[in-house]
Amino acid sequence: MKIDRVRCLPERRSGCAPPRGQITGAQGMRWLAQRETLRVSKLWTQTVLAPVISALLFILVFGLSLGDRVRNVGTVEYDQFIVPGLIAMAMVQAAFANNASTIFQARSERYINDILSSPMHPWQMTIGFVVGGVFRGLLIGGSLLAAALLLTGVPFENPAALALTTVLCLVLFAAFGTVVGIYAESWDNTTFIGNIVILPLAFVGGTFYSVALLPSPWEELSHFNPIFYMVQAMRFGLLGESDVSIWLSLGVTAALAIPAYLWAQWLFSSGHKLKA
């Protein structure tokens, strides 16, 4: 480009002075949340389609193909029995991975500075980022639920419990992903937690079986697995039954979600690992 083609800046054209309105940060928070959801939408084949197909394959292979050969679990048909756990597993993994990757990438490429330097309160930044993970989890959960309704006719016994469980699980794992994304020094750190911690816990959390059928001490040990309670709460919401009380399941999930969220909030407030 030639120098003589440099165009006038808009200020000169309009002759206007900068605006001096009161800044609350609310607008910024909305835009940050929107940016996070836009990222999920732009990468929908990776962020939504892939985990939905993966979970659907479990329903097809374990539920529909083997379902006839596996006896009912309690009064529930096996293909319906596995649906709540698979939905919970897909949602929490996605919420975690979403926030761990979006924060880590923003940190490593330093475009998070655009957000950290902006007129937003730290709590608004936390909400803005958490919304992205929750949005992705909801897209996956909603898609899987719709598919499972068609494929297995899974019932909808307790919508309120289902909604509350979904929100708590997604906030917990989106916040936890935010924390891991802030502490991570490499991509390996983020995938390690997802693949070595969350995925195995999800598999042994009673997704494919009732832990009541396990011999001691495995049944008792299952109760130390936090994802077990999320699977049970989800199962109660959809099927109306679970291995433990819904209140215990919701209580454990909330007891984990609150500190995870506060941890993420503290990192934004203190600047620890975000600012030198």
């Binding site: 940060g25 910024g28 835009w31 940050l32 990222r39 475009y111």
Partner: peptide, 22 residues
Amino acid sequence: NLDRFLSVRETLIYHGGYFGMG
């Protein structure tokens, strides 16, 4: 340090949003 997921237009709009623009 530009956001790799945003186009030129989106980069500017989202920045404006972070800084309080409608």
